[in-house]
Design a protein around this nucleic acid. Structure first.
Length: 212
DNA sequence: CAGATCACCTGCTTGC
DNA sequence: TGCAAGCAGGTGATCT
């Protein structure tokens, strides 16, 4: 009996009568309602009589049965205030890109939306978080909200794997302004989009529009 | 303790 | 054509 379904950062939490099932899709995970198990089906759930497949090619996803819901991650970017966000940036002497990916700082942002948010805010991914001026911190906060809100409306970004529970892809990949557009012209100034590695993650940005 | 780096796993694309 | 290297929506362990 599933009593509640909710999201906590990148976790999907199913509250059951005897615990919580915490599902993380990793990079290539999918939860599919119905369908036939295939070579990448890692688990088959039967929830209140409905079959749900957990497919995951790369196996970075996870499914854990916990006594209690997980906690301790940073605030949700759509719930945190601009003032609180700026305050949290203040003491951190790391590159913004790495900080935004850190789930203890903010919960829910991943590689795509970090790059897209930094671009919209006009901030360089290597900028040191603590050195960001207050107006720029506010601008970044607004950009993150904007990107996430638009992405949710578009059903997310389907690069190669992602589909929703009914097998439908998202459309936000067509709105990406920098992510995986290396060498293509910036939509703002025409300069070629650059790709660097930050925290071992491919990081895409416009060298002209985004300043440290 | 914060921050940086490596490791985990499989498949697809790129370049010699 | 064949094969190796590089790349991919993430994060936990292990270093400095």
């Amino acid at each position: 009996m599933v009593e509640e379904v909710r999201r906590y950062g990148k976790f999907i939490l199913l509250k059951l009568d005897n615990g919580v099932l915490a599902i993380h899709l990793g990079m290539t995970g999918k939860l599919l309602a119905g369908g036939t198990p295939g070579p990448y089906t890692r688990a088959v759930l039967v929830l209140d009589g409905v079959t749900v497949l957990f497919d995951d090619v790369r196996q970075f996803g996870s499914m854990r049965w916990l006594a209690q819901a997980p906690e301790g991650l940073g605030p949700d970017p759509l719930a945190v205030s601009a003032a609180e966000f700026a305050l949290r940036l203040h003491g951190r002497r790391t590159r913004l890109k790495a900080l935004l990916l850190n789930q203890s700082f903010l919960r829910g942002l991943g590689n795509i939306y970090t790059d897209e948010s930094l671009f919209r805010a006009g901030i360089h991914p290597l900028a040191i978080a603590a050195r960001l001026s207050l107006p720029r911190a506010y601008k970044l906060h607004a950009a993150i909200r904007e990107v996430l809100t638009e992405a949710v409306v578009s059903g997310g970004s389907s690069i190669s794997d992602y589909v929703d529970a009914d097998g439908r892809p998202g459309w936000f990949q067509f709105q990406h302004r920098v992510y995986q557009r290396t060498g293509e012209p910036c939509v703002g100034c025409g300069a070629p989009i650059r790709r660097i590695l930050v925290a071992q993650r491919g990081t895409h940005y416009c060298p002209r529009c985004q300043r440290k």
